[in-house]
């Protein structure tokens, strides 16, 4: 992809953001909106440059919590998908319940988790794992079940065992689907971490936001939100990079089609 193509793709959304910021800046001064209701973009940027030292600690705490929760969520999500796939009866029994369980808002579970697991790290991790594992499990199950019938039949014909079919065919075949689940889970995991910190914490961006809310420091809340967005983007990009590395054969396919 040439720089010109890249620029062609990037300028419309970039332009929209710049326009939006100009409008925001103008509106706050034109309508005399008070800072504690809606601070101007310039105000947020200057606040960020003042408080970034304090925020580094909180950001680090949130990132750490996110990565731990995400890691556990990925492992559990993939394990559950693998087990449900290999044992069709379990899948039949549990898959509907799994979907039903997603109707329970995580934030409503928070107080319960604190009663059961206390204010420590465990209840926070559980919140993140709960939001992460579902998209991974559903995506992986879909990918595993969607295995190409001709390839599956080939493996059966040449006498491959159930394990060989899983490791040599079904698992690699499901990777693109698994990664689309991972991408969603990666962004969810930041959200889960913020919610977890709202419920119980003495550090992290979620905690910082609550603190600034009670002080009506809207500008600082916006700074925290900006960091949250940045963290989400970083998580997302990391997964995309990993995906490109793992699914090289597919990327070259896209490049080939794009090059024609």
């Amino acid at each position: 992809m040439s720089i010109r193509d890249w620029w062609k793709g990037i300028w419309p959304p970039l332009g929209a953001v710049v326009l939006f910021l100009i409008f925001w800046q103008a509106a706050t001064s034109f309508f005399h909106i008070e800072d504690w209701i809606l601070p101007s973009p310039a105000r947020i940027v200057s606040e960020a440059s003042h408080s970034y030292e304090r925020l580094i600690g909180h950001t680090w705490a949130t990132l750490q919590l996110t990565l731990e929760g995400f890691g556990i969520g990925v492992v559990i999500g993939l394990l559950v998908a693998g087990i449900l796939h290999v044992i069709p009866f379990l899948r039949q029994a549990l898959y509907p319940l799994l979907i039903l369980s997603q109707n329970i808002p995580v934030i409503a579970l928070g107080p319960l988790l604190i009663i059961w697991f206390g204010f420590g790290i465990l209840s926070k991790l559980i919140v993140i794992v709960l939001v992460c594992f579902f998209p991974i499990t559903v995506a992986a199950l879909g990918g595993l079940a969607g295995t190409d019938r001709t390839m599956l039949n080939y493996m059966q014909m040449i006498g491959a065992s159930r394990g060989q079919i899983f490791w040599k065919l079904e698992l690699p075949y499901s990777l693109p689907a698994v990664f689309s689940g991972l991408r969603i889970a990666a962004t969810y995991s930041i959200m889960g971490a913020i919610i977890a910190e709202w419920i119980s914490s003495d550090q992290g961006l979620g905690y910082y936001m609550l603190l600034q809310q009670s002080a009506f420091r809207t500008d600082r809340m916006f700074v925290a939100i900006l960091i949250v967005i940045a963290l989400s983007l970083v998580m997302f990009s990391l997964i995309v990079l990993l995906e490109h590395w793992c699914i090289r054969w597919q990327r070259t396919n896209h490049e080939r089609q794009g090059g024609r």
Binding site: T150, M151, N153, Y154, M157, I158, P172, W249, Q250, N253
Partner: peptide
């Protein structure tokens, strides 16, 4: 038996 299906069914990865 060795098997060759109608579609090549090569593994793309």
């Amino acid at each position: 038996a060795g098997y060759m299906p109608q579609q090549p069914a090569l593994f793309p990865w």
